[in-house]
Computed example of a mutant assay.
Amino acid sequence: MKKISVMLFTLIFGMLTIVGNASANPVTYDPSLAHKDGAMAYKHMEYLAYDIGSRIAGSENERKAAEYIEGQFDRVGLDTEVQEFDYSSTKSSSNVVAYKEGKSTKQIIVGAHYDSVSAGLGVDDNASGVGVLLETAEVLKNIKTPYSIVFIAFGAEEVGLQGSKYYTNHMSEEEIENTIGMINLDSLAVGDQMYVYGNAGEDGFIRDQALAIADKKKLDVETNPGLNPHYPAGTTGDWSDHAPFKSKGIPYGYLEATNWEIGDLDGYQQTVEHGGIWHTENDTLEFIEEEYPDRVQEHLSTFSTLLTDLLKFMNKTSTSK
């Protein structure tokens, strides 16, 4: 694994420190943040977007982001590995994979891509998803879960889902059979409404259980209402890292913030006031927090709570897989 050396410095009122290289001496945070829903996720999101910046696939910044994520998994104490891959004759990236043992040898994969486009800083798309991924991994590290959990930060999503395609193409038949489902986290911070999606029919059990948790805990999470016949109620399109898993027959759940009731009713226009934020120069904390005060914190808290409870209480009574 490649390592980088960085100078000792302190950020954010003494709560953030980097010492040495990214994995041996990772960025550390006040432990109390892991016990405040969404607070740790916010710090991770902020670090990826502002201490690293835009994370274009194959770039030095994307590599720095991978090292940061690897360091955070190591800090938490999870078994971690980096899966390097080439996606063209000149471009390479990596998936950062961490494993948490559960009560069962069956596994659930939770993934979020860490690369971004060049416009903006990739706060919403997808430092927000990685933040929730890392917070959930830390909260659950000492909690028994029904299934083992594989946390994956995917590289090169923005150039054709390269990381998730590489990962699924290198899964054995036994691994595929052993995987209960995949939960994808993408663009959680700014959309007008929070959603969870899943497969049609009985393979949509992850979505259904998430909605039941949201109802019980009074979380403002719903699913695609199905106004567009191309995207039936409860489902979504194959444009994010859940798609390669779906193609292998693995049921998926997908957390996202957007708005399915405006524009072409396809979920692409995230907000009434500004349309899509992802892939634009508006994908920064300054813009999002000025236009939508407290929305980022509310979304990260809600999604972190939902994902944590989903992984703690997941069952598969509604599927025969």
Rank of each mutant, 00 (worst) to 15 (best):
S5R: 15
I12L: 10
M15K: 12
T17A: 12
T17L: 13
T17W: 08
V19Q: 10
G20M: 06
P26W: 00
K36A: 06
A39D: 01
M40Q: 00
A41N: 03
A41L: 03
E46R: 13
A49C: 15
A49L: 14
A57H: 01
E62H: 04
E62P: 07
Y68Q: 09
Q72P: 06
T80F: 03
V82H: 07
E84M: 10
Y87N: 12
S89G: 14
S92C: 13
S94Q: 09
N95Y: 05
Y99L: 13
E101V: 15
K106E: 15
G111T: 15
G111R: 05
A112N: 01
H113T: 11
V117Y: 05
S118Q: 14
L121I: 10
G122P: 01
L140C: 07
I143L: 06
I143G: 09
I143A: 05
Y147P: 11
S148V: 08
E157D: 08
G160E: 05
G160I: 00
Q162D: 02
N169M: 10
N169H: 11
S172Q: 09
E173D: 03
E175H: 03
E175F: 05
I176L: 06
D186L: 12
G201I: 05
D203C: 02
I206Q: 05
D208C: 05
K217F: 09
L219N: 04
D220R: 13
E222P: 00
P225E: 08
G226H: 10
P229T: 14
Y231M: 09
P232E: 00
A233I: 07
F245R: 01
I250A: 08
P251G: 09
E256Q: 15
A257Q: 13
W260F: 11
D264S: 09
D266E: 07
Y268G: 12
T271V: 06
G275M: 04
N282C: 10
I288D: 12
E290D: 14
V296T: 08
Q297E: 11
L300N: 03
S301R: 07
S301P: 07
T305L: 02
T308I: 01
L310V: 08
F313L: 11
S320F: 15
